[in-house]
Every structure is written in C-alpha cells, then in structure tokens.
Design a protein around this nucleic acid. Structure first.
Lengths: 333, 333
DNA sequence: TCTATAACATAAATCGTTTGACTTCATTTC
DNA sequence: GAAATGAAGTCAAACGATTTATGTTATAGA
C-alpha cells in the first residue's frame, strides 16, 4: 500500500505535487507530471479514498438500503438508481437487510458513519417506521421510497397505490362484474393497506356492497392466493372478478381458476398490481391485466432527489408521486 | 455532524475518553461514561468510520464485484456471501458492473481505494482476464469466484464444470441414448468452454463419434435454444438426448420439444446445468434433471477464504473446487 | 540591471478518529 | 509515612490525503 508520500519521495518532489497530478490540477511541469505518472503506474499506487473523503468532506457515494437485494420486484428500481447515479457522477452502493430489522439498522448506520453523502431507503413495511425516524434524526440527506411517516417532512418517492387500486376496481365494476373480490397483499406492508383502501372506496362509490368475505387476506406469493381461491370455489362462492394486491397474488388466483377447469377472463376477470416481469409463465396463463408501477423511473427519481438535496443547500424536501398505469392484457380485456 | 471533540467539550473531558467509551474500553469512571453516553444520545452523534478506518487500517468491509446484481443466478451466491460475512463480523457490500467492463473497473478501484479490506470478484467471462490482472497487481487480499487466470497463484473458488459436464453426458450415454447433442451456453463465458470440453471428453471415452451439428451454439437464455431445437426438429435431425450448457438453455430445448408434440424424456432426454430455482415453470415442464452448483456454499467459501487471507498473514493462496452434483428429475430419470 | 509577473514548489494545517506515553491523585502495602 | 500500585484522565502523534499560504525561480519588459 503505497502512499502519496512514497511516490513523491521516489520522484523527488513534494506530495502536494503528486496530489495535483492525481487531481488533474495545474501547477506541475510537464516533465514532473510525466515522472509522477510513471511512478504511480510502476508502484500500482491507488490513492486512499478514505483520507481524501475525510478532508474533502464528501464521498460521492449514495447508499441504498433495501429489504432484499434478491427479489425480482426490485430489479427495475435498482437499475433506475444505478443509471441515474452514473449519470450524475455518484457511486451507488447497495446493502440489503435480508428483511431483518437489526441488519437494516446496521447498514443504515454503516452509511451514516460518513461512508455515503446520502441515503436512499425503502420503507415499505409498517415496522420500518422507527428506522425511518432513526435516519431522519441523523442523516441530513435522505430519500424514502415507498412507505410513510406522517408528520415529518422529507424527500419521498411514492406511488399512488390507493388511486391505482381505485381505478382497477372501477374497471371491474364498469365491465359489469357483480361479485368482485379483493385479495390483499401481505398486510405488513403499507401498500397493501393503501390498495385495500382504494378497493373499498371504489366499491363504495359504485354503490356496490362489500359483502362478508369479499376481502380475502393473502400475501405477495402465489400459493396462499391459490389456496384461498380454491376454498372460495369449493364453497360455491366464486367471484366473477378479482382485484389482486400484487401480480403474484393474481397468478395464484388464476392458477386456482384454471385448475378448476374454469376460464379467465370469461368466468373470472383478474387484475393485478405491479407489472412484474413474468417468468416465462406467460405461456401458461393468460396475460395479466395489471397496474404498472414505474419502478425504473422511481429509482431514477430517488437519486435525483437525493442529489438535489446534496447540491442545493436548503432545498425544501419534495414528495414525488407516480401514478400507476393500467396495462390491459387478456385476464381482463 | 458532530465530532468526538464536540461531545468531549460538551461533557468537559478529553476526546480520548469519549473514544474509549465508544469502543468499550476500560479507564473511564462510571459517572463519566454515563455523561458521555448521554451526550452522544442527545446529539445523535454518529462516529466517522472513515477517520476510524484510516487510523485502524481496517474497514471490516468485504467488497463484492459482480456482473449483474439483478440476475437470479446469483441469488444463492449473494446469500452465501452475506451470511458468512455476518458470521465472521464483516460488512459485505455489493457493486454491480451491469456487464460493462468500464463500470466493473470503476467499482474494483472503488473498493481498492481503501474502502474495503479485500475483494471478492466474479470473473466468469473471458474478457474479465485483464480485470483480474488489474486486481492481482494491486489488491493484497482477493478471492476470485469462477473464471481463470493461468499462471497466477491466488485464492479461488471454482466448480468442476468439465467434470460435471462429463458426468452428465456419461449418464445420457449409459441410458442408451444414441444421438446426443450439446447445446452450449454463451461462449464468452469460461464455463461454456469447460462444459463443452467435458461433453466432448465423455463422448470420446464412450467411443461415440461427435457428428457435425452435435454441438449447437446457443446461449444462457431460453429463446435461442428453443429456436435451434426447432430447427433440428424441422430438419429431421432431432437428437434423442441433449446436454444443455445451462438450465435456461435446457428449458428452451424442452419448450421446442413439447411444442412439437413430442415428449420429454421419452423422445428426448434433457440434462441441464446450474439447478437454478425454476420460476413456477415447473408446472409446465417436466422437472429438469441437472447438475447442481452449490452456489450458496461457494459464496460462503469466498468470504471464508478472504477472511483467512486477511487474518493469517502469509497464508498461501488456496483454490477450492466444488463438485457439481447430479439432481435427477423427470427430464432424464 | 532591476523589477514585475508568471510558473512552479513546499510546508503546514486540516479532516475525525485511535492509541501509546504520560500525568494525577487516591489507595494500598510494608 | 514513604513507596508502590493502579485507576482515571490528558496529550499529541499518527493515518493519508487536500489545500492554502508562502516561498522560490525563471522569464520578460523597461
């Protein structure tokens, strides 16, 4: 591990001169620049970013904390973050809490200990609230994607889940469906509550009573939704339309319908939420009508807001809301 | 951003004392410890890790550089790295080059600039060789997963792809299949060459001639393999067994077979490589017989080797080779 | 020849910690 | 009661860069 001083000594100049070469600053004779570059090359010298960041008081790093890196749902978000970071000249570094709260705290602190200029975090779970508080108290530059924290003012990127759910439900109503069900997502997530609220509001506005059992608790995975739908069918209480809290939930519903020899959308129309890239499942199921979330754009916006906060001192926090967009496919044409 | 000095001043002690409290070291009276902790709490003080790492000459961070974070193939590997890092007391940080060489270099340098104690990198592509050289010259602590660099001695984690391919092919031979094809993976990856070599060796040892067209160039995705298999079927040159360079390739083959009204494994037996977690595709296709790569264990081993290099000065580099294991399912029972 | 002005070089301060050497002062030991 | 012990604290030098203020030359102009 060579230092700038060793390079300087080897060439016979002061370390400040080497620093200037390193940073492409003027004030170095061509010969000296040449010699210094050669010495750097020869010694495989790599400057120490810690020392540099310490004096510069800036890292050019954006830290991203998420529940789980290994989740297809996040791919587009990650890409959006990366691309915008690249564009604005920041390194984007990811840490994943593997859904464990203590690990998430650790990584948040990790970034706040001077290792990043700012933090982008996902706070989609209800239990994330204290973590968000923790960050707000300490980190001067922070963007929250998803999630909520009533009463606090900070940079946010959100999706109008309630509105999206409302429109999805309204579509089912407008198509003349009579027995409309909502399969919720995992209720430990904010969005599941918002989507349920949107469903209920749409039903109410349409003057349609929400019967007992019209809201079915499920989660973000296929199996549970499939099982629940099977139960409904067996009990002869099959709906003629379902609004699902997530795409995977919708696939579970469709699976149950198809396995019972019934048809989508003729017997049951299905609308999902997210527009996740389907694993070559599209071959098996009818294409899923769903509310698309612009995850890539949300990722980009997250970095944009953070950099704005970083570079414009005193900028007022901003909350950007994206509208989900209906993507019509065969499951509810 | 408070500093240790401000905390010290507020309490009326020296900064060294605060540092001791921070690090749980003895030599602080209970009252002072109490007062210092209170001041830290009140100021929401977070110590600066850069300064600490600078003087400690250690970050307790392991940097991981990979082609693409957003690739299901890597999930188990990532989990293995994370879990072992956790176990050994290191933070594991991921950067992804998005398959762009220049970005990969950037992130490698990023870690080498003193931000990590060591690097774990994936070098699975042929074109990664110069990058590996780059790292070897500069980073004293490094583990390579996959990939190769003849002539150099360093810590490595590998899979015996050639051997695995050999055994897979041999199985097809032993089952009495006569027209055996190999669909290669993307030939810009090391493993594709190794698997091809294993296939050829097994065929040779079995005394089976490898006819023209028995090696079909494809890649790691479904569509191309599907198309190639369709061509073979159309031309009446359908094999009765295929060894695929990857699971996705195998799924492409199966798709073509099934879409042509033929049966797996009766008409064509298929063996893949990787044992990727199949997306509820298993419902559609017969279960895939494949060579399982122990990716989770490989990730763990990567961190283990790195930490060993970090903590045992002068430890000789080690090369750990994992044997892929045959997982028998319906596609080649 | 002398001075004004570039053009470059250098020393020293700084960033926020840790840590080994050092000082104080109260307590124990003989 | 003096010396030894030990705990509680302080001081200042690192760590490896950047940067400012200052110092030194060389060059050109008058």
């Amino acid at each position: 591990m060579a230092t700038i001083h060793e390079i300087a000594k080897k060439v016979g100049v002061s370390s400040a001169l080497v620093s200037r070469v390193l940073n492409g600053k003027p004030g170095v004779s061509p010969e000296n620049r040449q010699k210094i570059l050669a010495a750097i090359q020869e010694a495989h010298y790599v400057p120490n970013a810690l020392a540099r960041s310490l004096v510069k008081q800036s890292t050019q790093i954006i830290g991203v904390v998420m529940d789980d890196l290994c989740e297809k749902y996040f791919f587009q978000l990650i890409r959006g973050l990366q691309d915008m970071g690249e564009e604005l000249g920041y390194n984007v570094v990811f840490c994943s809490g593997r859904s464990r709260m203590d690990v998430k705290y650790r990584y948040v602190d990790y970034f706040m200990e001077g290792r990043a200029d700012g933090i982008v975090a996902f706070g989609s779970r209800l239990e994330d609230a204290p973590l968000i508080q923790h960050i707000l108290k300490r980190a001067p530059h922070f963007v929250l994607i998803e999630g909520d924290m009533p009463g606090a003012s900070f940079n946010r990127v959100r999706v109008n889940s309630t509105g999206g759910a409302y429109r999805a439900t309204k579509r089912l109503v407008d198509l003349g469906r009579k027995r409309i069900c909502h399969f919720t997502g995992d209720m430990s997530y904010n969005v599941s509550h918002e989507r349920l609220a949107g469903f209920l509001a749409a039903m109410k506005d349409a003057g349609m009573p929400v019967e007992d059992g019209a809201v079915i608790r499920s989660d973000f995975e296929e199996p549970l939704a499939c099982q629940r739908m099977n139960e409904l069918i067996r009990q002869g209480r099959m709906p003629d339309a379902c609004f699902a809290g997530a795409d995977k939930t919708a696939y579970g519903i469709m699976r149950a319908v198809l396995e019972n020899g019934l048809r989508v959308p003729q017997d049951v129309a299905v609308i999902g939420f997210d527009d996740e890239e389907p694993d070559s499942r599209d071959m098996l199921f009818p294409g899923l009508t769903t509310m698309r979330q612009p995850l890539y754009e949300m990722g980009q916006m997250g970095v944009k807001l953070l950099v704005r906060s970083l570079t414009t001192p005193g900028a007022a926090p901003q909350s950007v809301v994206f509208e989900p967009e209906l993507v019509v496919r065969e499951s509810c044409p």
